[in-house]
Amino acid sequence: MTRYLFTLLLCVQFSFSQSADHLNTILKQLKLNESQIRIELFTEKILPYDKNKSVLVIPKYASDIEEGSFVLDAYILVIDNVTGKIIYKFIEPNAWTSDALILTDITIDTGLYYLNKTTRAFGIRADYRTQSQPNPFSETNLSLYIVEKNTLKPVLHNYRVYKYGGEWDMKCDGEFEDIDSTIDIDKLQNNNFNNLIIKTKITKTENTFKNDDCDSKETIKKETTKLIFDGKQYK
């Protein structure tokens, strides 16, 4: 057990060190300083289908921080893992805003997004939440990116795949709604790209204080929709 924990610790330290090295190398290429980015939201992930490359998300401040709120430019990069050289780059100004709705996390999604026989996308998820206890709210937005003609381009922009919200008296009485979507790939195509099938589960919960107990009633509904590629993006 001791040997296993020691090995695990070394792997974590190596991964952290490698990530830090990549960040320093990338910032030099972008001519940015670490003080210009929201370091706790920086993320990096090796592409499982091309382990010589990694995706990096550099969240650069687009404006000054004001009373806890900030706006970030999105630097979405694909790099060579050996040299740290940027291979593909996409920059979206003012991509994320953290204000009353707080940006808490950015993650890289390397799911099986096969958009046609030769094109696989990767995703970037942005998580938000509020600090309100009587009116809790959170959501996750997904963007998809592909490499096309040696250029990194977005094909799905900030599509909401998760939403949770409600209102309650902080004791029992209240109503909540949980909306959770997953993406399947359709066999049918438009403009040479497979349609995206959005399967959504909507769970509504109503809590009522009755007979000295908090009674909960839950209803579930399922919906299916499609997103179609218009030649530039999915809509």
Rank of each mutant, 00 (worst) to 15 (best):
155 V>I: 14
96 W>V: 12
9 L>P: 02
225 T>S: 14
60 K>T: 07
67 E>L: 10
26 I>S: 07
11 C>D: 02
32 L>I: 07
165 G>E: 14
176 F>W: 05
56 L>N: 07
176 F>V: 09
24 N>H: 10
142 L>S: 06
116 N>D: 15
228 I>T: 14
197 I>V: 15
5 L>T: 10
230 D>E: 08
75 Y>E: 05
141 N>I: 08
66 E>V: 12
143 S>N: 10
223 E>H: 05
114 Y>F: 14
177 E>K: 06
114 Y>H: 10
42 F>I: 04
188 L>A: 14
133 Q>P: 05
144 L>T: 03
188 L>D: 11
20 A>V: 08
116 N>Q: 07
200 T>H: 06
6 F>H: 07
112 L>N: 12
224 T>E: 15
156 L>G: 11
133 Q>D: 09
141 N>A: 04
28 K>M: 11
231 G>K: 00
230 D>Q: 05
95 A>Y: 13
132 S>C: 01
23 L>H: 02
186 D>R: 08
195 N>P: 02
230 D>Y: 00
164 Y>K: 09
229 F>G: 03
163 K>R: 09
31 K>H: 12
39 I>F: 10
146 I>M: 00
77 L>E: 01
119 T>E: 12
70 F>V: 00
183 I>A: 09
19 S>I: 00
73 D>S: 12
28 K>I: 15
37 I>D: 09
117 K>Q: 11
134 P>N: 05
175 E>Q: 08
74 A>P: 04
50 D>V: 03
98 S>E: 09
39 I>V: 15
137 F>E: 15
154 P>E: 10
59 P>N: 09
20 A>W: 03
124 I>V: 12
59 P>M: 10
17 S>V: 01
156 L>F: 08
108 I>D: 10
133 Q>H: 06
215 D>Y: 07
54 S>M: 02
25 T>E: 14
40 E>K: 02
103 L>M: 03
216 S>D: 05
217 K>I: 11
136 P>L: 08
215 D>I: 08
22 H>F: 11
31 K>G: 01
37 I>N: 10
145 Y>G: 02
222 K>V: 11
35 S>C: 04
190 N>Q: 15
31 K>A: 09
234 Y>I: 08
119 T>G: 03
40 E>D: 15
82 V>D: 13
104 T>N: 10
140 T>E: 06
54 S>I: 04
50 D>W: 02
5 L>Q: 13
193 F>I: 00
102 I>V: 08
12 V>M: 11
161 V>R: 06
96 W>P: 03
102 I>Y: 13
24 N>P: 02
103 L>P: 02
137 F>G: 09
101 L>P: 05
